[in-house]
Each structure stands twice: as structure tokens, then as C-alpha cells.
Amino acid sequence: MRRGLWIALVTVLGVVGCEGSPATGTSRNKTSTGPITAVATTGMVADLVKNIGGEHVQVTALMGPGVDPHLYKSSPADISQLNRANVIFYSGLHLEGKLAELLERMSAKKPTIAVAEAISPDKLLTDESGAHDPHVWFDVSLWSEAAGAVRDALAKFDPEHASEYRAACEAYQTRLAELDGAARSELAAVPKDQRVLVTAHDAFRYFGRAYDVEVRGIQGISTDSEAGVRDVTQLVGFLVERKIPAVFVETSVADQNIKSLLEGCAARGHTVKIGGTLFSDAMGEDGTLEGTYEGMVRHNVQTIVEALR
């Protein structure tokens, strides 16, 4: 009797196994018409692909608006999207953590492109142990360089429309260059010693470098990291000394930590206000201005300029 049971079990498992093996993921189909199905991980990457691919590419973002890439949880629908996609774009430099490892392995089956990894390494910031900081989109000129990777990938995958991709990319890069210049000049209007960006976590290093803004974060980049009491009192001292009028909260980080700074400054007779909410790891809702990369950058720059001026 017991053996019967085992045989039944083994048979069931066998059936399951057999059903599993012959099916394979979708492979690219050159004869198919209609738009290329592309999947992007973050909203920023999806926006990039949308702008370059135009009508020939249908792109979906796995991480919807407001979803922090560190805390993204996948679902079965996401996996079937990945399996069905013709091309996959992701940010790279470990921004997506384990998901990026999966995408790297998928490159044997279909093109998967890490857009930020196309930026020349000498322009990237590194951490103490030599790994690159992945938050490249805060520097518009770097993001513009990443656009080139999307263009090349699409042109290679779909040579028929290669010229259109190149044209679209050029146009987009021109717009980004304008945006970059505008951001630079707007920020330059803020006096040099007031040009300080204080946030809860230290994600704005590229922004600081590109637009000559001094950047101070309370805690490190990792969500697990935490500040010391001395770090906070020193930061308060810094704010008071330099008479910085505002600090900023981020969409994806709790704002309790920033409030203690305000109190600390108030106790020393210097009023600091919360200058506004910056988009850091995720963009705004679809359909709003902040739902596009350009809108997001503008929002951040305007918020900072208005608060610090």
C-alpha cells in the first residue's frame, strides 16, 4: 500500500516534470509585424526607451511609479512579461540587485541591456570598496550617454528602423543637453555657500557633482544604514553655521529623520524649513509632469532652487 502511494506520487511529479521541460521562453521572431515588445525595470529606463523607440517599441516598466527598486517585489505577471519580451532594458550597476543577475543570465536568450553600464567607467562615482554608485540619472549628461545604449540596442535588434532610432535619440539627447544647461544655470543662481542639498539618505552624489551642489545625507545609501548622534549634531551645526534655509525629503524614504534636524536647528535659533519632496529612486505618477524623466529633473531642480534661494 505504501509503495502504491509512492508510485502515485512519483507519477504525478513525472507528469509535472514532463510538462515543464518542452516549453521554452519566447524567442525573437523577425517576421512578426507590429511594435517590438520591450520591458524596462525602472520608470526612468522605460521613459528612455519610450523616447527613442517611439511608435516601434511598446515598453512596459516592471516597477510602476513610486516603486523603490530596492524594495520591488516581483509577481507572476512580471515574469511572463519578461519571458514574452523581445528586448529587456535595465539600469544596472547593481541598482536592481538580484533581478539584474537574472537579467544577465537571460542575455543568452534575448538582448538584455544595462543602460547605465554603457557610461564610461571613469565618469562614474565609486564607493569605498570600488563598486559604482548606480544613481546615475541625477546627472543629465550621464543619462544622455546612457540613451546611446538604448539606441544601439534597438538599431541592432530592429535594423529596419535603425535610422529612425538614431534620429529620435539625437533629438532626445539635444533636449537633454538643453535640460542639463537649464538645470546648471538655474542652480548657479543660488549663491555658492547656500547651494547645499541636505537629504535623509546619501543618493544625490551625481547631482552634487554635476551641478556643483554640496550634498549631505544623514545616513548612507543602504536602507539598512544609520547615522550616529554625532553625525546629526554636526549636521545641525553645519546648517546653523552656513544658514542653510531648507532641507529636503525624498519620496521613497520616511521623513521622520529629517524632522529632528529642524528641531535641532530651531533650538539653536535658526529656522530651517522642509524645502519640498524630491524624486530620488522612482518617478511620479504616469500622466503627470513628474511621470517623465525630464519632468522629474525639472521638478527636483525647481524645488531645490526655490527653497534655497
Binding site: 548622534v229 519620496t251 524614504v253 520616511a254 529623520n257
Partner: peptide
């Protein structure tokens, strides 16, 4: 964004 960690504070806050 950050819903799961939203209620989690840090000591320095």
C-alpha cells in the same frame, strides 16, 4: 514609495 519602511524610524530621528 517606501511603504514597508515608512513607519520605521531611525534613532537619530
Amino acid at each position: 514609495a517606501g511603504l514597508s519602511s515608512f513607519i520605521l524610524g531611525k534613532t537619530t530621528g
